[in-house]
């Protein structure tokens, strides 16, 4: 089986002065094209560090990341990130925020008119075309995150990296946005790696759930396949036995075997 994205024996050690902290230990993971994989773990277990390593924003101490069998160790639009706090540039309009990436990625392959159409196409995908001339401060948190998703999608990434994309949103907005991401994944077939700490979110969205042990020296504790057919419907799943079983497995992992120990 050909792996699309491969995390190969990744270790990460932070050094500050004479103190060294081993954050990640021997992380191995392969993701196939079109798969939706979630990484779940307690806060401080290094899941965001892992995502940053895949994004190229942080370098692994040992091991590396292979995308289509080529090593990647610097950031690039082929691994676009949707950041937790949206990270839209406040001085640009919604349209300009998406355009920033599009202009760079398609500078030589698309004409100006095509790039404009592509920005609008992606804003339409997340239902934000109506707000294209607004600034980030003028739209709601959920809308900002939609624009963040559009910005990432518009770069046509090989892997879409989501760093707790719904963490800062209220429950209703979060559910709404999860449905949107699910629909986009269905429609576009992106390969997605998502960091989350929400069990329901992980089960609802993922094909596979990677559960991480507590840090320091966090490892992959268990990988769970989610055998639920797509498209998935939130309401139907609530009573589905398979869904509840998956949920139970993750909960057991997080709250029985690897309880979060508050640092003293």
């Amino acid at each position: 089986m050909q792996s699309y994205l491969k995390l190969d024996h990744i270790d990460k050690t932070f050094t500050r002065g004479s103190a060294t902290t081993e954050v990640l230990k021997d992380i191995n993971l392969t993701i196939e094209k079109g798969q939706y994989v979630s990484i779940i773990g307690h806060s401080g277990c290094g899941k965001s560090t892992l995502l940053n390593i895949v994004a190229g924003l942080t370098n692994a101490t040992q091991g590396g990341v292979l995308l289509e069998n080529r090593e990647v160790n610097s950031p690039g639009p082929d691994r676009a990130v949707v950041f937790q706090n949206h990270s839209l540039l406040p001085w640009l309009t919604v349209y300009e925020n998406v355009k920033l990436g599009v202009d760079k990625v398609f500078a030589s392959t698309k004409t100006r008119a095509e790039r404009d159409a592509w920005v609008m196409h992606n804003l339409n995908l997340v239902q934000m075309a109506h707000a294209k001339d607004k600034r980030p401060s003028e739209i709601s948190g959920g809308m900002k995150q939609r624009v963040g998703i559009a910005r990432a999608l518009a770069m046509e990434p090989k892997v879409l990296l989501l760093d707790e994309p719904f963490g800062a949103l209220d429950a209703l907005t979060r559910a709404h946005l999860q449905d949107s991401v699910m629909a986009l994944h269905q429609k576009l077939g992106n390969t997605i790696l998502m960091i989350t700490h929400d069990v329901d979110e992980a089960v609802l969205l993922s094909d596979r759930i990677v559960m991480m042990t507590n840090g320091p020296s966090a490892r992959i504790g268990e990988v769970l396949e989610v055998p639920l057919a797509r498209p998935r419907k939130r309401l139907e799943l609530a009573t589905s036995a398979a869904y509840l079983k998956c949920r139970q497995r993750v909960l057991e992992f997080l709250y029985e075997r690897h309880r979060f120990v508050e640092a003293a």
Binding site: P75, P77, R79, V81, F83, N85, S87, L89, W91, K104
Partner: peptide
């Protein structure tokens, strides 16, 4: 965050100066 965005989009130093730093 803004530096990360610039890194993912791969802005060159001149673009980074004009589009991120100054604003």
């Amino acid at each position: 965050d803004y530096r990360n965005v610039a890194a993912v989009v791969q802005l060159n130093p001149l673009e980074f100066f004009g589009k991120i730093m100054i604003p």
